[in-house]
């Protein structure tokens, strides 16, 4: 099976609002697909529906052939679809290392009783996870910040820690909701570099919501365009640049 993630006919209705209409997409391992569209197009709703925060009224979300739609958010995350949040999802009062460790929760072994009694089974697994978290931080040159409160980091550093935390468990699918928003041009490039490496080196399939058009054109393999809750176009960056429907969605009907 070459498709990692298949979304088919996803429909979301809120009271009086048809937020997502019959949206389908497929994502292959190592592929970066950008989701673009004007405000209110349904991009974040699409992410919420895939990751279980919004219950789709119809449609399927298949991860390696298994339907995960309508599972709870934590169950979907445990299956391997992990996401970040537009407004940042870090735990500010916890340290950088503790934040990354929360991303390894499901991988950490030892029953609740082992934990309460401080048995070596739980402690050994904890130590292994701490070592892994430190390795991940050093890949991002952030190991010296392991014991800093996450809330004390700069905005760019927070975004990077959130991504490290999200990929710590090696999820096959990653949904990134505007990871570069509010970043300096330099930090933006770094962020895009990190995203490319995850796709290229680890084969993670990535869905990326991003407003910065130059970033999307340079970094994404494919682009999907949404407007008014619908999938209106999809193609390579070059194809999308020439697409009339896209121009209309952004500029209005001429």
């Amino acid at each position: 099976m070459s498709n990692l993630l298949e979304v088919e006919g996803l429909d979301v209705r809120f009271a009086g609002l048809h937020a997502l209409r019959d949206v389908s997409l497929t994502l292959a391992p190592g592929q970066i697909m950008a989701v673009i569209g004007p405000n209110g197009a349904g991009k974040t709703t699409l992410f919420n529906a895939i990751s279980g925060y919004v219950r789709p009224s119809s449609g399927q979300v298949r991860l390696r052939g298994h339907d995960v739609a309508r599972l709870s958010p934590h169950a979907i995350a445990e299956h391997g679809i992990r996401r970040t949040f537009q407004n940042g999802g870090l735990f500010p009062a916890l340290t950088v290392l503790e934040n990354v460790l929360t991303g390894l929760h499901a991988q950490t072994e030892g029953s609740l009783v082992d934990v309460i009694l401080g048995r070596s089974r739980a402690l050994a697994s904890e130590r292994a996870m701490i070592a892994k978290a430190r390795d991940l931080l050093s890949l991002m040159q952030m190991e010296h910040m392991a014991d800093t409160r996450a809330g004390d980091l700069s905005g760019g550093q927070q975004r990077i820690v959130e991504i490290v935390r999200t990929v710590a468990s090696d999820p096959p699918v990653l949904l990134l909701d505007e990871p570069a928003v509010g970043l300096s041009p330099l930090a933006r490039d770094q962020m895009m570099d990190i995203i490319n490496r995850m796709a290229g080196e680890k084969g993670v399939g990535i869905l990326l919501i991003e407003h910065a058009v130059e970033l999307v054109m340079a970094g994404a393999d494919r682009i999907m365009v949404m407007a008014a809750g619908q999938h209106i176009a999809e193609g390579t960056p070059a194809e999308i640049r020439e697409d009339r429907a896209v121009l209309e969605a952004y500029l209005g009907h001429a």
Binding site: S72, P73, A77, T102, H105, A106
Partner: peptide
């Protein structure tokens, strides 16, 4: 919300 997204 973010906690659940980590499989917790």
């Amino acid at each position: 919300v973010a906690t659940a997204s980590l499989g917790i």
